[in-house]
Design a binder for these strands. Sequence first.
DNA 1: CGTATATGTTCCACGTTTAGACAAATTCGT
DNA 2: ACGAATTTGTCTAAACGTGGAACATATACG
Lengths: 404, 404
Amino acid sequence: MRKINPHDFKVARRGTSREINRQIALNLIRAHQPVSRADLARLMNVRRGVASLLVSELLSENLIFEGALGESVGRGRRPTFLYIDSRERCVVGVDIRASRTYILVTDLVGRQLGAVSSFQTNRDVDVLIQELARRIKQILTDYHACEGVGVSVPGMVEPTKGRVVHAPTLAWHDVNLRDPLAAALGIPVQIENSGKACALAQLWATRSDVVASGNSVFVSVSDGVGVGIVVNGEVLRGRHNTAGEFGHVPLSIDGPKCSCGATGCWEAYVSNLATLSRYFGRDLSDPRPRDSEEAGFSVEDLIARARAGEAKALAALNSTARYLGLGLASIVNALDPARVYIGGEITTAWSLIEPIVRSALRERTLTEFGGATEIHVVPAEDHPRLRGAVALVAAPAFAAPMVA
Amino acid sequence: MRKINPHDFKVARRGTSREINRQIALNLIRAHQPVSRADLARLMNVRRGVASLLVSELLSENLIFEGALGESVGRGRRPTFLYIDSRERCVVGVDIRASRTYILVTDLVGRQLGAVSSFQTNRDVDVLIQELARRIKQILTDYHACEGVGVSVPGMVEPTKGRVVHAPTLAWHDVNLRDPLAAALGIPVQIENSGKACALAQLWATRSDVVASGNSVFVSVSDGVGVGIVVNGEVLRGRHNTAGEFGHVPLSIDGPKCSCGATGCWEAYVSNLATLSRYFGRDLSDPRPRDSEEAGFSVEDLIARARAGEAKALAALNSTARYLGLGLASIVNALDPARVYIGGEITTAWSLIEPIVRSALRERTLTEFGGATEIHVVPAEDHPRLRGAVALVAAPAFAAPMVA
DNA sequence: CGTATATGTTCCACGTTTAGACAAATTCGT
DNA sequence: ACGAATTTGTCTAAACGTGGAACATATACG
C-alpha cells in the first residue's frame, strides 16, 4: 500500500500502458530467453496480438533480436525465438579499491566477455582517471560499440551529480569522477558506492539461482564493512545517499576504535584489519611500524593457518565469525530481508565459520524466522562490485517506468 | 530505478491509465481540498476534459462530493469545489496497550470526531474482543455508517492473516484478533503492529506541516521501543513482518538485560523502565517487590522532578537522552531517512533533552547531513497509534495502484 | 451592456488493449 | 500422400483511454 506523493507524481499518459508493458516484456525476455511471442503472451496473460506489437517495438529499437526457429514440442508452427540483443554491444565495469583497480567487460545482460584486468590504484584522481581512460580505450579496441562505463567506488557517492563526496581509504573529498572520465572516453559513465553496487549486482543477476532478491541486503566484509540494501526491487539510497552504513552501527559503544572516529562499530569488530589485530594481539590501525611477520600478512594467510589447524588463527577467526553473526542480527532485526548476501575475503573461510555466524545470528534475532534468514555467500570470483558497476549501465534499460 | 520482478508483475490493462489517474486525482483532492476540476487539471497537467471525467467517476462512487461554489478570484465563472466525502461515514481506531485500550472515531481523512475513550485492557483475548465490540457498538450509535475498524497492537502482527503472532506485554501468542472482532461487529477490521501504525499515521497525516514523509522513521519510546520505517511512501514490512525492530539493535552487547532475552539492546537503555531503573539505581524489571516510592512512580513523575531541578532525576533523564541519540544514529546511518519522528512519554521532556539527543546523534553519525537529520516530536495528544490504526482502514482507498 | 476571462462539457482524433478471425507452418493419423 | 489438428504470428474491429480544441455557461470589468 504505497501513498502517492501529491507533490511528486507521474500522470498516466496515452503511451503509459504501452511503456509499462514494453518493460515487462523486455524483462520477461531477459529472464526467460529464448522465448517466443506466444510464450510472452502466455506469461503476460495478454493476447498474442499485443505481445507481437510490443516485440516489434523492441525489435525496431534493437533491444532484442529474432534468433533461429525453435524446436516445436508438439505439432504446430515452430516459434521464432527472441533474445536480448547484446551482439556487438558491451559494458565496462570498473571497481576502484584502495590498493588496486579492476576492469571487466560484459555484454548487456552482464555475461562476462573478457578476463578481469587490474592495475595499482593511484590516489591522485586526475592521474587515476587518465590511466583508467587509457586502459579502457585499449581494452575496447577488441570490442564493438560500448554502451557505457560503470564505476564502483569505496565511499559516499552522489550518482546523480557524478561526485565522490567522501572516500576515506582513497583520501578523496568531493571530487567529480564521472564527468572527466566520460569526457576522456567519450562514453557515458555512471558511478556508485561499492556496497550499493554489490546489492545491485545481486538484484540484476541473471543466474537463475539468485532470483527473487527484491528484498535483500548485501554485506561486504573487507578493509571496511559495506552494506547495500534492496527494498521492493530498488536500492535504498536515503535522503543523502548514505543509507546502508550498518558497518558503523555499534556492537558496543565502548568497543574498539573505528576508522570513522567512533568506537565499537561493527566494522571495528569484523573488518579484515580487526581480525588481524585480534590475531596479533594489538591494534594494527595505529601508526606504529609492523614487525616482519605482521607486514604483508593478509586475512587469507590467517584463514590458511586456521585451516591448517593453528589455534590462534582459528580463535581470531571464530571471534570475527561471532561478531559477524551478531551484526547480521541487527540487520535482520531492523530490515527483515528475504535474504542476506555476504562477500569479501572472509567468505573463503565460510565452511569454518558458518555455524558460529549462524548461532550468533540466532542469539540476537527476535524470531526464529529471523534467525533462519537465508545467507548466501558470494565468492570473490563472482566479482560482485564489478558486476554491480556493470549493472549501473545495463540495468536502466530494463527498469520499471515511474508511474503514479 | 526499480527492477520488475519477472515472477510477480502487473500488466497494464485497458483501464490502468484511468486507475492511476483516478488515484492521483483523489489524492490531490485530499491534499488540496477544496479544489475545482480546473485546479485539478492544472495540478495534474492534463486537459480539463480528463479531469472532469475522473471527477465524475469519483462522484458516482461517492468518494468525493461537490460543495458550494467558490469565490472567483478574478473574473470568470466560479469554480465548483470538490471535497473528499466523509459525510456520514466514519472510521474507528483502536490502540491496545498493555495497561489500557483506547478508542477514537474519525472521518475518512483522519479528522477526529469524538473524544478518545479508554478502558482497562483485559489480557484474555476473548474477553477483550467482547468488551471492545460492546464499546465500539455503543460509540457507533452516535454515528452513521462505519467503514471499518483499525487496531494497533504492541507486538508482531501478520496483517494479511489478521493474527497477532507474538505480543510479549500481553502474553499473546498466535491469536486471531481480526476475524472474531470483525464477526462480533459486522464491520471489516484491520490490525497492525503499533510501530508500523505510528509510521503510517505520519505518512497519511493531512496536516500540512507533516507532508513529504515518504522516507521517514517513527521511533516510539515507551515501555518498549517500537520503530516503524517508511520507504518510498510505503511501510517497510520485511519478509516476515518483523522489519523495524531497531529497539533490539544493541548499543553494547554486554549492556543491561533486555526483555527480549538478549543484552544491551537500545530498548534496555531508553525504555521508560530503563530510565526509572537508572533513577532508582536498580533493575526494576526483576521480580523483587518495589518499595513504596518505586510503586506507581512513572516517567512523567520523573520528568516533573527533573523540571523541578532534582539532580538525580535530571541525571537519569540525561542518560536516557544520550542513549536515545546514540540509537538514533544507528537508524540514521542505516537508513538515512529524510525525517525521524519521536513519540512516547519521553517527548514531554523534549525541551530538556533535545540538545543532548542531538549531540549524541551527531557523535555517531558518519556525515554532517546525517547529524542534522530532521527530528520531529509527536506529542501524545496527537495519538499517533490511534491515527495509524485509523489509517489502516482509511488509507487503502487512496493508495497507489499496483503497476508493472 | 458588450467584452474578457475562467469553468465545465462535448466532440473528435489518436493510441492502446481486447477479442476474435485468419493465414502460415508443422505434426499426427489414416 | 493427404487431410485434420494444433500452434504461431498477423490482422481487423470494438472498447476505452488521453490529447486537443470548440462550445456553452457564469462572472467581473469598463
